[in-house]
Design a protein around this nucleic acid. Structure first.
Lengths: 327, 327
DNA sequence: CACACACCTGGGAGCGCTACCACCACAATC
DNA sequence: GATTGTGGTGGTAGCGCTCCCAGGTGTGTG
């Protein structure tokens, strides 16, 4: 369309067409250094004419900056990557990276072998790091090379900043709401024990129950609908008089509701059910939940890495109670 | 950990440690060309010792091969990228690419301006192309440079192979099932008209209905739960005696069910509802649907591109009817 | 009129890697 | 003993880009 054999244009082509040197063209495009208005204009015109797009590989090579963001997901087994939450995170990070000429890669880091992270980050192609389902051990393994180019979702450290949901606040609001609407025998389907952000929710649940002088009822889950489905039955087997079930996630809650309905138990009349996150589906099934703009949170994390605005501090996004039909 | 300032090792470092030249080291790692068993062994040892990982940017630069796969998603507006289906596709492609040292990028291509694709693919960083929600116009714009490195999902061309779901067969099975179970006033919430794969479903629906001597009832949807929610009401307003609604996707069906339940209409007693895809949630809400391993299909597409096994032909994945409670 | 000090420009090195080529040893052939 | 391999090796160019530095112009000051 533009050049003869449609070999993508290089900076040399641009310089030749603009009648300047490669250095000048580079300076104009970088926006730093000196360049006369004339030169600037001619380079701009040449860029448009040739449809020039910089070669990110060459740029990354000279900068030593890497060419993709790594999303490292800790978990017991590679199946964590099947989680729709991970899908959403990967897609959101990819969207944020694309305009910067960066790609994304995803890898699982086994819970028992956090040192795998080192091998992954030894790849110079890695320009930045997003940690998902982070554990403290993982945070310590983020190499110095990537300081200021790493962000964790869910738990941070002195060197690695984190972007976070106010799980505690959200869960507190949910459990209080259940209590306020007369529920007293409130159970919780939790997340995996090793996951900091899930534990914050569990602790909030315990605190509210304790303050109300009520005993806790916990079954360990894993965020999935499938597990929620199974956990619901376990809850009712152990504590048949349960009148409310708090799900660690919306998917968990949907699984719980599926099981309850299948067993002829009415929601919310017999048992109230709540979720966490407010995924799009939550509205259509009238799920009471806590709302967080997950996509925006992930995007914020990716942006921090991309713009290197990673002050070692924690950004906490608020949680908003959304009361619908299920509780 | 390995080297002093933990500057990631280069091939030069490996060569020096192994006591061979950079060329020899390169040859050993590439696996082609000559290299004595001794040299081979020493290079291998040095690689392990230094934890050497090749710099993908440098490799891409010299090969001119690009450094990421582009996922181009056609749609009316950028909101198509919010679709969980796109999330899943991006994540699945990313997983397939990561071991190859490639990242992924996602971009929206406006329906009315397919030529945007040209600008995207002019970027030399683009190593391959996965087309989503493909239109014929888009297929013609895949540059020759990317021939054999592009794959389309849903509709192919003479030069671009496609990976596909048997939408026609799946929908035929679903509508026949509804007919077999006594439904006669069957409506469909379709996908966008411009989308080839959605149209295959619609045509199958029409054919079955026509063969049974029944009139069709169509409302245009867009795959989303939200739209399904609204479409359900539209269906019942226009044809109040409808006894079955075929959703173009599971999300659509879930939206439809949400609306029907909210209106006190029993599923499947009053109105049967079916979905398409069999997403994980479908099982927990007992949705009758057609099952396809979407993740595997996307992975297959990505693998075709990565291994350049893109013979210009169509691979069709079968569709399996899954009868659950909703129909 | 010399000098300083802006502003602007092109030459050239080099990022880490692969590909090509020249070269060397040693064996087999005429 | 000169020729042709054949396996193995190192030197070097160059992918497209950015940055540094030397060398220009022009305008203002002593």
């Amino acid at each position: 369309m533009t050049t003869a054999a449609h070999r993508p244009a290089t900076l040399d082509d641009v310089a030749r067409v603009a009648g300047v040197s490669r250095s000048t063209a580079s300076r104009v495009l970088a926006g730093n250094g000196f360049a006369s208005p004339t030169a600037r204009a001619r380079v701009r015109t040449a860029v448009d004419l040739l449809g020039y797009v910089p070669n990110s590989a060459a740029r990354a090579l000279v900068h030593g900056s890497g060419v993709r963001l790594l999303i490292a997901v800790a978990g017991a087994d590679p199946a964590v990557l099947d989680d729709p939450y991970v899908d959403q995170a990967v897609a959101a990070v990819a969207r944020a990276c694309t305009p910067h000429g960066l790609g994304v890669a995803v890898q699982w880091v086994p819970l028992g072998a956090p040192e795998w992270l080192t091998r992954l980050t030894d790849d110079r192609g890695v320009a930045g790091l997003v940690l998902l389902n982070t554990t403290p051990a993982l945070l310590d393994l983020v190499p110095r090379r990537l300081a200021g180019r790493a962000v964790s979702i869910g738990i941070g450290s002195a060197t690695v900043p984190s972007v976070d949901i106010d799980n505690g606040g959200g869960t507190t609001a949910i459990v209080r709401h259940l209590h306020d609407t007369g529920r007293r025998r409130i159970a919780m389907v939790t997340g995996p024990r090793w996951l900091a952000c899930a534990n914050r929710s569990v602790r909030a649940y315990r605190t509210v129950m304790h303050d109300a002088g009520l005993p806790t009822r916990e079954v360990v889950g894993d965020f999935s609908a499938t597990r929620g489905y199974a956990a619901a039955r376990e809850v009712l087997r152990r504590w048949p008089d349960t009148d409310a079930i708090v799900g660690i996630s919306d998917a968990t809650a949907l699984g719980v509701i599926g099981r309850l309905r299948a067993d002829g138990i009415r929601v919310p009349d017999d048992v109230a059910v709540t979720g966490f996150d407010d995924i799009p589906l939550a509205a259509t099934v009238a799920l009471t939940t806590a709302s967080h703009p997950v996509r925006q949170i992930i995007t914020a994390a990716a942006t921090m890495v991309l713009e290197q605005r990673t002050a070692p501090e924690t950004t906490v996004f608020p949680s908003a109670l959304v009361v619908r039909g299920s509780a």
